[in-house]
Simulated assay, not measured.
Amino acid sequence: MDMSWALIGSITDIPRRGARCVETPRGKVAVFRTAEDRIFAIEDHCPHKGGPLSQGIVHGAAVTCPLHNWVISLETGKALGADEGSVRTIPVKVEGDQLFIALASEAKAHRAA
């Protein structure tokens, strides 16, 4: 898949166990930093009622939605436990302390059902 990378800032712009939002041509993306400094990016809306995942609580490699406590895997974008649904994950790369997210070409973009 053809990808271009967009610089979104430094790893230190995101607090540990926190997130920040990035506007992309395809909508808001939440970029998360875990306690172990792992970086993930997913769509910033819960598959349940559209809650802002960027405002949720990060624990391990998951985030809990602030509206109805759904837990979403940062690795797969899938709801965990008994809940069903998913959000699109976005590739991220770290070079030094700089963060980049992938901006996939629209023609080949994959969207989770």
Rank of each mutant, 00 (worst) to 15 (best):
D2V: 14
D2C: 10
W5R: 02
A6T: 10
A6W: 12
I8C: 02
I8V: 13
G9Q: 04
G9W: 07
I11R: 03
T12A: 10
D13Y: 02
I14D: 01
I14E: 01
I14W: 00
I14V: 08
R16G: 02
R17C: 06
R20C: 08
C21W: 03
E23S: 15
P25Q: 08
P25C: 07
P25G: 11
A30F: 06
V31W: 00
F32H: 02
T34Q: 09
A35Q: 15
A35M: 11
A41K: 00
A41D: 07
E43Q: 10
D44I: 06
H45N: 07
C46R: 00
K49N: 12
G50S: 04
G50M: 04
S54D: 06
S54P: 03
Q55N: 12
G56E: 08
I57N: 12
V58F: 09
V58N: 01
V58T: 04
G60C: 04
G60F: 11
A61N: 13
A62T: 07
T64R: 07
P66I: 03
L67A: 07
L67Y: 13
N69I: 09
W70K: 00
V71T: 11
V71Y: 07
V71Q: 11
E75I: 07
T76Y: 01
K78Q: 15
A79F: 06
L80Y: 11
D83T: 09
V87C: 03
R88D: 12
R88K: 15
R88P: 04
I90K: 01
I90C: 02
P91C: 04
K93S: 15
D97V: 10
L99R: 00
A102I: 11
A102F: 05
A104C: 06
E106N: 14
E106K: 13
A107T: 09
A107I: 13
A107C: 04
K108M: 14
H110I: 15
A112Q: 13
A113R: 15
